[in-house]
């Protein structure tokens, strides 16, 4: 419950953030909503001698829905996602997923940027962002660079972001077709036993495009290109669903924990993916 002592900084701009990160290196860390980092600090699992609070840094709290893409500032909260009508119209899967993350109080504070940058495979937004083929913008002293969500996750808590970089925004190509974020969990606020993000495009009675990513079934989120491909060109009938599930099972690598053994997680992953595809298809 009691975090170790640290120095606290609340810079007003990104230059201020970067200079503190540069000065203190590994000993400094940025904090957005604080709802993963503070719990870890309270358990002394995270040691952060220099804590940089991003709340006063401008320009990171906007949601911009453009003609072909959506830009979400890293400090946009889950509650902001849920409340934003334009965003819900343009990319309804975001609201559907955000409502399955944590609880009301946590959603007022927890941010999109923190969720995707955290690196915990339990987080829901990483898989969702891989499904949507989002791009993460990070800024460091050498300037900005964009990293595709599908290339961002290396292992649990290990991402392509360098220690001295700050994730500033998520950009999503305007999603097309039907959608679903289906999550099996033990209770409200729990990380998924298994979850699936699906976007699917229907042309006539045929699947023209599909994108599938799975949550908390490996040490990273899993974008399953093989499962997506198994649906394209089919009528999304039972055989196609079976092929997609089989392909997905080849890409995930769950581990046993108190959410269940590996065999159970594979089973749940299949059930969840079938449900997600069926719901997305019904909306396509």
């Amino acid at each position: 419950m009691i975090p170790a002592a640290f120095e606290y900084y609340r810079p007003k701009d990104i230059a201020g953030v970067l200079s503190i990160l540069e000065e203190h290196g590994d000993d400094a860390r940025v904090m957005a909503g604080g709802h993963s980092l503070i719990p870890m600090m309270k358990l002394r699992m995270a040691d952060v001698p220099h804590l940089i609070d991003l709340q006063d840094v401008g320009g990171m709290s906007d949601i911009t829905v453009g003609g072909d893409s959506i830009r979400i500032g890293a400090m946009v909260t889950q509650a902001d996602i849920i409340d934003h009508e334009g965003l819900t119209t343009a990319a309804p899967i975001l609201r559907e997923a955000a409502l399955q993350i944590a609880d009301p109080q946590v959603r007022y504070m927890g941010t999109v940027g923190g969720n995707v940058a955290n690196g915990d495979p339990g987080n829901d937004m990483p898989g969702l962002m891989q499904c949507l083929d989002a791009v993460f913008t990070v800024i460091g002293t050498d300037g900005e660079r964009d990293i595709p969500a599908r290339d961002f996750y290396e292992a649990a808590y290990m991402t392509a972001r360098e220690d001295e970089e700050v994730l500033t925004a998520v950009t999503i190509p305007l999603p097309k077709g039907g959608w679903a974020y289906e999550k099996q969990k033990r209770k409200i606020g729990d990380y998924a036993t298994a979850a699936a993000a699906v976007q699917i495009v229907k042309d006539g009675g045929t699947c023209a495009a599909a994108s599938i990513a799975m949550t908390n079934l490996s040490d990273t989120p899993v974008y399953s290109e093989a499962a997506s491909n198994a649906l394209v060109g089919t009528a999304v009938d039972d055989a196609a669903l079976g092929a997609a599930v089989a392909a997905m099972l080849g890409d995930i690598d769950p581990t046993e924990d108190n959410r269940g053994p590996v065999a159970f997680k594979n089973h749940v992953a299949g059930v969840i993916l079938r449900r997600a595809i069926a719901r997305a298809w019904s909306r396509a």
Binding site: H35, I38, P39, K42, L43, A79, P104, Q105, Y108, M109
Partner: peptide, 23 residues
Amino acid sequence: ETSHCGACTVTIDGKSVKSCTMF
């Protein structure tokens, strides 16, 4: 001590916040 229970909930600038998870 894991931000689940909400017994510490207060309203901060119009938001319901678990005050155990804010400095």
